[in-house]
Simulated assay, not measured.
Amino acid sequence: MKEPEALLIIDYTNDFVADDGALTVGEPGQKIAPYIIDLAQKFNENNQWVILPTDLHKKNDQYHPETKLFPPHNLAKTWGRAFYGDLQEWFDKHQNDEKVYMYDKSRYSSFAGTDLDLKLRERNIKKIHLVGVCTDICVLHTAISAYNLGYEVIIHEKGVAALTTSGNEWAINHFKNCLGATVV
């Protein structure tokens, strides 16, 4: 029997990807949509986990550090927090599948302040695949947390995008050279 694995689709929302999103990576993020959806479908068909850690914020939250750094984004019950493009349709179709779920996160890392580590360990998942945005922010911090927790990390280069090309390239190199992650 194949070891369980998980695909994490990080923050792939309208605010981060759509042209008029509040904090968008724009075209580079839009171009990766088919790859992400195809990968999610393959994981689902192979009875593997598809997890969608998704940023959630409150407007003008004085206690959240990102409030000082970025414009309001991924606010609850807004268009900006919906999944971008066909991923929303894919999720709507599969959200009742046992091995597909979305959860809220409020920090860069998908592990910070969440029960992700516990859920992965309960399911004996030791290998995680990362896609989404931003390569050099939330994907990076998730990869660092996963590394520190002992997970095998696979980054899908065709499935990540950042606000800048240089930020994306820097993060890809960091995954390889500092985290020992596999970049495919």
Score class of each variant (00 low, 15 high):
Ala18Thr: 10
Glu152Val: 06
His129Trp: 06
Lys58Asn: 02
Asn14His: 01
Tyr63Ile: 11
Leu130Arg: 04
Asp86Thr: 12
Ser106His: 10
Asn96Tyr: 01
Ala6Trp: 06
Ala76His: 01
Leu7Trp: 12
Cys138Arg: 08
Val160Pro: 05
Thr13Met: 01
Lys2Ser: 11
Leu140Val: 08
His174Pro: 07
Thr24Ile: 07
Asp55Gly: 10
Glu152Leu: 02
Gly29Asn: 09
Glu169Leu: 13
Asn46Lys: 15
Asp15Asn: 08
Asp15Thr: 03
Ile137Phe: 11
Asp136Arg: 13
Glu98Thr: 08
Gly113Asn: 07
Ile9Val: 14
Lys126Val: 02
Thr165Lys: 15
Asp97Phe: 02
Leu116Cys: 01
Glu45Asp: 15
Asn74Cys: 14
Glu98Cys: 03
Asp92His: 10
Ile172Met: 13
Ile37Trp: 04
Ala33Ile: 07
Lys158Trp: 03
Asn96Met: 03
Tyr35Pro: 06
Asn47Met: 00
Tyr103Ala: 09
Met102Tyr: 12
Ile154Met: 12
His94Ser: 11
Ala33Met: 13
Leu23Ser: 05
Glu3Tyr: 06
Gln41Trp: 00
Ser106Asp: 05
Leu23Glu: 00
Gly180Val: 12
Asp104Ala: 07
Ala171Leu: 12
Cys178Phe: 13
Leu23Arg: 14
Lys68Ile: 04
Ala181Pro: 10
Gly159Ile: 05
Ile155Glu: 06
Leu7Ile: 08
Val184Lys: 15
Glu122Phe: 00
Glu98Asn: 12
Lys58Met: 04
Tyr147Asn: 12
Tyr103Trp: 07
Asp11Ser: 03
Ala143Pro: 11
Ala76Arg: 13
Ile172Ala: 05
Gln48Leu: 03
Trp49Arg: 12
Asn148Pro: 13
Leu87Asp: 01
Gly21Pro: 12
Ala40Trp: 15
Glu157Asn: 06
Glu27Trp: 06
Cys138Gln: 05
Asn124Val: 02
Ala181Trp: 02
Phe83Asp: 09
Leu130Met: 04
Ile51Asn: 07
Glu45Met: 06
Val100Asn: 10
Ile51Val: 11
